[in-house]
């Protein structure tokens, strides 16, 4: 095991920048999870598999119809919205208010099922979008980062902004927020809470639909790809505060940077250990996270 190593400042700056860029992608993935949790206090343990499916959607659109990943963003978001909506209607609706065990294992089972289904249909092979429009490096602030990463990062930040705008500035967004705060009161005000829950699942899944399409630009696509992102998303949501959308953004960036710093300062093998230790520290020391409400 290696002890702490001190990288050069150039490497450090490069690392931090790419950490921040990745952080925006984590933030969008976590925002979807957080939105769902805020609405009904259910953790979607199939979130990583949702991401995996969005990456496959993008990959197959590319492989079969030569659709560039940038163009398949709406497609992927739409497919995932539908998946989220159906998951709510088919599964989640029935376990609301059920025992904790059912709440955890219903989505956990769905995750296992989707992962196995992907492996069954498309084999465990690693696949890749080989000739995307955006590729190669780009120089930002004097350090070079991958162009696909930069595009993914900016796009996820933009999508995040749109999500935030939608929730805080539109009529439907208010209704979602009201449902999250008190579902009985919201129902009394004439809000169709059932619809809001389904919408929340749709939007939450569409977030990973967007993130997945951009990730497919530079990440291998395989049935287990979602697991790691999902674990990071849980940590992000815990750090930002379960149910807090702005919290996800700050936490996503922090985790992106910590992941890189953990890899640079300790050892690459330990970068996720740093992230998981962070989760434990946060939930034990400040269980409500940075921006949590309770």
């Amino acid at each position: 095991m290696s002890i702490f190593t001190i990288p050069s400042s150039e490497v450090l700056i490069q690392g931090i920048l790419s950490g921040i860029l990745m952080g925006f992608v984590y933030a969008l993935i976590a925002a979807g999870l957080s939105l769902i949790f805020g609405l009904m206090e259910i953790v979607n343990f199939a979130h990583g598999e949702f991401l995996m499916l969005s990456m496959y959607t993008t990959f197959w659109a590319y492989a079969l119809f030569a659709l560039d990943p940038l163009l398949s963003v709406p497609l992927s978001a739409g497919v995932l919205f539908l998946l989220g909506w159906l998951t709510y209607r088919g599964i989640i609706r029935r376990i609301l208010g059920g025992p904790m065990l059912a709440q955890i294992f219903a989505t956990f089972g769905l995750g296992i099922f989707l992962r196995a289904a992907a492996q069954f249909l498309w084999t465990p092979d690693f696949r890749q979008v080989s000739k995307a429009w955006v590729q190669g490096p780009v120089r930002i602030l004097g350090v070079s980062v991958g162009l696909p990463q930069a595009v993914a990062s900016v796009a996820c930040l933009a999508a995040f902004g749109m999500l935030y705008w939608f929730i805080t500035r539109t009529e439907t967004g208010f209704a979602l927020e009201a449902t999250a705060q008190d579902r009985q009161a919201a129902a009394l005000m004439g809000i169709n809470t059932e619809r809001m829950f389904a919408l929340g699942w749709g939007i939450g899944a569409a977030c990973v639909g967007v993130a997945g399409a951009f990730l497919a630009n530079f990440f291998y696509v395989f049935p287990h790809v979602g697991s790691l992102f999902a674990l990071i998303a849980y940590v992000t949501v815990a750090l930002g505060g379960f149910g807090s959308i702005p919290g996800s953004l700050v936490a996503g960036v922090i985790i992106g940077v910590i992941e890189v710093l953990g890899g640079l300062l300790i050892a690459p093998a330990f970068k996720y250990v740093a992230v998981f230790v962070l989760y434990l520290v946060v939930v034990l020391v400040r269980p409500q996270g940075l921006f949590g409400k309770f």
Partner: peptide, 16 residues
């Protein structure tokens, strides 16, 4: 991974 396909489906069905 047919076994996992069945396991996952069963787990969700039982939980729900």
């Amino acid at each position: 991974a047919v076994d996992l396909l069945i396991y996952g489906g069963l787990l969700t069905t039982v939980a729900v």
